[in-house]
Amino acid sequence: MSTVVLLLFTGLGLGALYFLVAAGLSLIYGLMGVLNFAHGAFLTLGAFAGWEVARRTGSDDWGIFLLSLLVGAAAGAAFAAFTEFVLIRRLYQRHIEQLLITLGLSLAAVALFDGIWGTDPVFIQGPAWFKDTTEIFGARVPNDRFVCIIAAVLVLLAMVFFLKNTRYGMIIRAGVENRSMVTALGIDVRKAFTLVFTIGGAAAGLGGVLASHYFGYVSPMLGGSLLIFAFIVTVIGGLGSLTGAAIAAVAVAVLQQFANFYLGGTGDFVVVLALALVLLFRPSGLLGRTS
């Protein structure tokens, strides 16, 4: 029982990270049709920015941790907004070329991170409470899992609130549904594009800081490895669906943890297998629109 609970919470924590990456990817794809390969670089930049905050202030209390979350999210958001404004904007409607741009950007950015911070992972210190465990049904769950889960739930709620109840949120939802109609109504969708990129980048940056605490280190490869699972999550959840991304993120991560433990480290294959099954029986994903 305790093992199951532990695996469940570890999976939920990992799922939270997947969700933070996949949410932005899914929204960006849904609205703009861009598969954003640079999303991993947003995450890595956020993680390094958060780490720099912790390192420069030299303390590891809660205030600094919250500040590092804020700085990480801001760094991710700034990088994402820059990407959209300077590079993607020139190539609207050219989806593959936009993809190629983000691909080139991720190559260049990861190489630059290599040059600045080195290729080796740097280890990170959080508040001391992170290292403790909390006992739930006899399982000793590391506390950083809860932080990831709570942060992801808050981000999900905030995003849902934003999409449902604000004017720009409605424009974005309408744009995902039918972009040309929104344009025809005289609304400038391009502002929504920048906005979606910024929100996605902020979520990824936040995810980066959390991931660095979850894994205990930061490295230039951090974003790339999470990005591939985030791709799988977005396909399984249905491209463009935020709720789908949340459900799929949890399902994929929990499945991965259980398979890793009970089936001898086969978590990654089980995930790819799940992807193949979803594609065979529901090519548009769990909550994707059937087209």
Binding site: L91, S106, L107, A108, D114, G115, I116
Partner: peptide, 20 residues
């Protein structure tokens, strides 16, 4: 020094410029 000592940075930038 940092950008120039990373071949992939130069290649990635070159790639972006070619696409654009």
């Amino acid at each position: 020094r940092i950008p120039l000592s990373e071949p992939l940075f130069i290649l990635g930038t070159l790639f972006i410029l070619v696409v654009l």
